[in-house]
Structures are given as structure tokens and as C-alpha cells.
Design a protein around this nucleic acid. Sequence first.
DNA 1: AAACGATCCTGTGCGC
DNA 2: TGCGCACAGGATCGTT
Length: 273
Amino acid sequence: MPELPEVETIRRTLAQHVTGLEIREIKLIWSSAVCGWEDQSFEYLVTGRRIKTIDRRGKYLLIRLDEDLTLIAHMRMTGRLNYYAESQEPEKHTHVVFQLEHGEVHFSDVRKFGRIQAIPTQLCISGSSLCKLGPEPLEAEFTPEVLKERFGKKTLSLKAALLDQHVLAGLGNIYVDESLFQAGISPERGVDTLSEEEISRLHGAIRNVLQAGIDAQGTSFRDYRDANGEKGSFERALQVYGRGGEPCKLCGQALERIRLAGRTTVFCSKCQR
DNA sequence: AAACGATCCTGTGCGC
DNA sequence: TGCGCACAGGATCGTT
């Protein structure tokens, strides 16, 4: 499932191929995957525009086009953006094909949850759901003090808080469980029970884990691929995610597997307090 | 206001 | 071997 490290990897691999290229034609195979601005169709807005840069905010990919238009793409669980230098027949779950002046980009999604939306760039700053997102965990402005402030007066579990994109942007089920393991803190703890030292440890663990994920080009537990169709390698470094019942790599005790905040949660009840 | 559950989808993998 | 069902999960919406 693309979380921050996976979306960042897609951003980097896609940008290498498509920066500066014009979008010549859109093929909509399943039109619900895209959404235009007001009554204008997605094809009308996007066709003929040039790709300037590609940014990322949390798990959102922001494809900046000229004339101040932005494509906001979200992969949800199984979405993919693939670049092909040569024209390709769309695969079974490909919903949109962007034909560029060189090559094409295919947006595919088995579970049909991913979306691409075209909106005026200024609306990304005020007026879209993007401006409600929490801070970027890898930016210098994100400090332990900011994390504490984001938790505020909430009383919910750490698991629920860290999955909430309004608290902190970019974490999903994999990296929340991994961060909490590295910090040695139980996902069941309320956010209001952490000491200063624990907040600081959690902050450091989140940044470590996300950076390691990016360095490994993401986690390909199931469906994730980058824009070149390559898998990531971070699944080999996973300490807890997907390892319920298996021995903890630190103490050997069997890892707990519970349901928390509506998500499968794996942790070590001995190492995480 | 905060927190929780239901919803959307389809492929995978399990049990019988 | 084959069938059916639970499960996986991010964000949004509605309800408590």
C-alpha cells in the first residue's frame, strides 16, 4: 500500500521520465478514476498541458502542469502509475492512459479506490483537503514539540492518532506499526500518556523508519510498484508488519496481532510498553 | 467535537 | 479439486 516512502519513490521515478513533456491525449477507460474541475471534463483541462514538476504532500502525488493546473493523484491501496517509453496495450486494471510527446503513463488500480483530480494550483494551498493535512514528517520543521502539539488534547490510541492524516501526513498501517516498534511504545497507549522522552523517541523513530523506507525504494508487500514497475525492498527490513505470531526480532517472544483503530496491528507486548 | 463504524473494490488464501 | 467467505486497507461520510 503506497504510504509516504512509496509515493516518494513513485514521484522520483516518474519525474525522471516525464518532466517537461506535454500531455498529448488522454484515454479514459474507466472514467470514474478521474475528476475535472467544476463542469469541465478532465480530458479538456489536461490535454495539451506540459508537466512542469512533480511534488508530494503526504500520500498525495502533485503533478504540476503549466497554466497553474495540478493533478492530485492518490493511489490508496493498489494504485499504480507506470511510465512506458513505447506505446503499450492497457492491462486489465488500467483505467487511464496519458499519451505524452514521448511515451505514455498508465494509471492502474485493481481495487478502483485510487483517484486523479485536476484542480487549479492555488486551490491546493487553500480550499482542498490537502490544506487540512498534518505536517510532513521528514521536514526540518517537524520536531518533537510539533508532534506533541499535534496530539493536543486528544485521548485516542497512538495507533489511531498516527494513522490520522490530519495529525501527521504520510503514515499508513505499515509504517505506524514499524515506527512504534522502533520507539518501543505500545500502539494501545493513549497519546496523552506519553512522557517528553517518549514523544522524542517516537518522533525519531518515525523519521528513521520513513527515511529507511525511501532508501529501500519502498515496501512491496503485495501490489506496490514504482513508475518503472520495480518493487521496493523494505519488506525485508520489516520488524513487525505482517509478522503476527512470529518471534520478535529483539526478544524472541511471539508478536501480538490485534485489531486496533479498525486495522490489523502487530506489536511486541514485551518490547513495546 | 471527537471518535467510531460502514463504505467502496477485487484478488488472495484459507477452511471445509 | 472446488466452492464460499473472510480479509486486506485509505479516506470519506454518516452516526453516536
